[in-house]
Computed example of a mutant assay.
Amino acid sequence: MTTLGGGPPGTLLLRPDPRLRFFLPARLRAVPELAVPDDGTSSLGHVVQSVGIPLSEVGALTSGDRPLAASHRPVPGERVSIEAVRRPERLPPGPPRFLLDVHLGALARRLRLVGLDTECPPDAGDAALVARAGAERRILLTRDRGVLMRRRLWRGAFVRGDRPDDQLTDVLDRFAPPLAPWTRCPACNGLLEAADRSEVERLLRPGTRRTYDAFSRCASCGRVFWRGAHGERLRNLVEAANRTVVARLAEAGHGHPAEMPGGED
Rank of each mutant, 00 (worst) to 15 (best):
L153W: 14
D123K: 14
R160C: 02
R150H: 04
E201R: 05
A180W: 11
A124D: 02
A180N: 12
L129Y: 11
P164F: 01
E136W: 06
D170H: 15
P177D: 09
D170S: 05
P164A: 02
F158K: 04
S198Y: 14
L129N: 02
I139H: 05
D144S: 04
G190V: 07
A157Q: 07
L129R: 06
D170C: 05
E193A: 14
W154L: 03
F158R: 06
R184V: 07
A124K: 06
P186C: 02
L140K: 12
D126R: 04
R152L: 09
R145A: 12
P181K: 07
L140A: 08
T142V: 07
P122E: 02
L168A: 05
R152E: 15
G134D: 04
A194T: 12
L191H: 13
R155F: 10
A194L: 14
R160D: 10
C188S: 05
Q167S: 05
V200F: 09
V130W: 14
R132G: 06
R160H: 13
F175A: 06
W182S: 10
D126H: 13
T169P: 00
L172A: 10
T142R: 02
D126Y: 12
D165E: 15
R184P: 01
G161Y: 00
V159W: 03
M149N: 04
A187W: 12
W182N: 03
D123I: 13
R202C: 14
D166W: 07
I139A: 05
E201I: 10
A127S: 07
D173A: 15
N189D: 14
A195Y: 13
D144Q: 03
R197T: 07
L204I: 02
A157C: 12
V130P: 05
T183S: 13
V159C: 09
A195N: 08
R132Q: 15
R143V: 00
R184M: 10
A157S: 12
M149S: 06
G125I: 04
L192P: 09
R145G: 11
C188R: 02
A131Q: 15
C185V: 04
G190W: 11
Q167C: 04
L129S: 10
A127I: 09
P121L: 09
D126S: 11
N189Y: 10
F175R: 12
M149L: 07
R145P: 07
G190M: 00
E199R: 07
A127M: 01
A180S: 08
L168T: 08
L203F: 13
F158T: 09
